[in-house]
Amino acid sequence: MEGIFNIIFFVAIGFGIIQIVMIIKFMKQIALSLLFVFLLFSCLPAEKKNEGVKTLEQALTVAGNCPNAKDSLILGFNFGMDSCQTIYMVDSLVKVGKLFRENNRLKYAFNITPFCYKPVMTFTYTNDTLSKVSLVFLNEEKHPVELIKNAVTANIFKPLSNKGYKSYKEKNPFGIDDYYFIKNNTAISLNSYEHFVIMSYSNAIVDMKEKQRKDKEQTLKTQQTLSDL
């Protein structure tokens, strides 16, 4: 009987050690990703990051006043496509294996070091014209959300910079850094939430018009409330 207890004891210890090793491994990955992203954003010359503007808000304002450049987005989509063109392109990408459907969701195999994620791809239209392409990382692999966001940021930073995108970061309401890349009227954002990460390609022109509409609507509501007093 004592031998059995000894076996159980050592098995439990071994399992505990494995769990600790896995936790340490994840912590190292998070730390390395955070360090790499920090170095990327802090070492980049200020004139390259902030050429002509000083803040993210200013950069988005400039982008919102740009002509619709119809730059190529992920997988070749662009902000000049209507819904029919977008659906046709999606079907073509599925046929060649670039996109796939799983559990009634359209997904993309996002292969980055050290993992392969399968984010859900969604499309938003404004007046039947593509205005946003989003990749939703649902954390199906059970990786820490910050690890996902920092790993994605670390891998996309160089190729986007080479394409002429300017980089910015801003703290979200939770005090965590979110990352942005802007070129012409395209604004790419990486935002983390409690259980998922969203990477979006947005048309800054459409975003600005929507913001102005909401601001005007809120102003009218405020004026109405004040007049009711």
Score class of each variant (00 low, 15 high):
14 G>A: 09
15 F>R: 00
15 F>N: 01
16 G>Y: 08
16 G>V: 08
17 I>T: 11
18 I>G: 04
19 Q>F: 13
20 I>V: 14
21 V>T: 07
22 M>R: 05
22 M>F: 09
22 M>P: 00
22 M>E: 13
23 I>Q: 06
25 K>R: 15
26 F>R: 04
26 F>G: 06
26 F>H: 07
26 F>C: 02
27 M>W: 02
27 M>C: 05
29 Q>K: 08
29 Q>C: 06
30 I>A: 07
31 A>N: 11
32 L>I: 13
32 L>E: 01
33 S>Q: 10
34 L>K: 09
35 L>M: 11
36 F>D: 04
36 F>C: 06
38 F>Y: 04
38 F>N: 15
40 L>Q: 01
41 F>Q: 05
41 F>K: 02
43 C>A: 12
43 C>Q: 14
45 P>F: 13
45 P>C: 13
46 A>L: 14
46 A>P: 02
47 E>K: 03
48 K>L: 15
48 K>G: 01
49 K>R: 15
51 E>L: 01
51 E>H: 02
51 E>M: 01
54 K>C: 12
55 T>M: 13
56 L>A: 13
57 E>A: 08
57 E>Q: 11
58 Q>I: 07
59 A>P: 08
59 A>R: 03
61 T>I: 12
61 T>L: 15
61 T>K: 12
63 A>G: 01
63 A>K: 05
63 A>T: 03
66 C>W: 00
67 P>M: 00
70 K>P: 03
71 D>I: 09
72 S>K: 14
73 L>A: 03
73 L>G: 10
74 I>T: 01
77 F>D: 02
77 F>A: 07
77 F>K: 02
78 N>M: 03
78 N>S: 03
79 F>V: 06
81 M>A: 01
82 D>W: 00
83 S>R: 14
84 C>S: 12
86 T>A: 05
86 T>Y: 08
